[in-house]
Amino acid sequence: MTARPLPFGDERHLLVHQWLVDEAYLLDAQDYAAWLDLMTDDVRYVMPVRVTTGRAAGFDSAPGMAHFDEDRYSLGRRVARFATEHAWTEDPPSRLRHFVTNVRTFATDSADELLAESAVLLFRSRGDVRESALLSAGRRDVLRRTAAGLRLAHRTITVDESVLRMQNLAVFL
């Protein structure tokens, strides 16, 4: 990111920061229906597969493959599944904590859209004695102003591991 971020005191940055923290609350609470309402209809939600390559290779994610590559339909199916009584992987539910930090906000060419960068650390605990799992990632979001407030139009999740140490991605980042 070459452009300068908005000053932390800027009202737009404060708005974005609050949005991200409020979103993290919904994800921790697994209130996925409310979370889905924060997406635009044309939302894209992408988490590439990271790979280890030499510095000269010019790429560090697997060509054509992602962990998530979602639109509103597929996110909607995932959320609907959690709402059934038979999504065993989350019943009993995980205890989740999304730590969101390093938030920087950038103005874009469009007055209606703000760009937000953030870091997220997800702590996930299942059962009583199972080892907990961590997932660290950077995020790059396009947030769009709507009559109802900011909505997520695009998210790219840059996970910091090539091989995930988590049993599945029955979570969102």
Partner: peptide, 18 residues
């Protein structure tokens, strides 16, 4: 594929938990 199998797949999620 992505919806059903793999790290985020909805079939796979429940398999692995078992």
């Amino acid at each position: 594929y992505l919806m059903c199998f793999g790290s985020s797949g909805m079939f796979e999620q429940d398999d692995v938990e078992n």
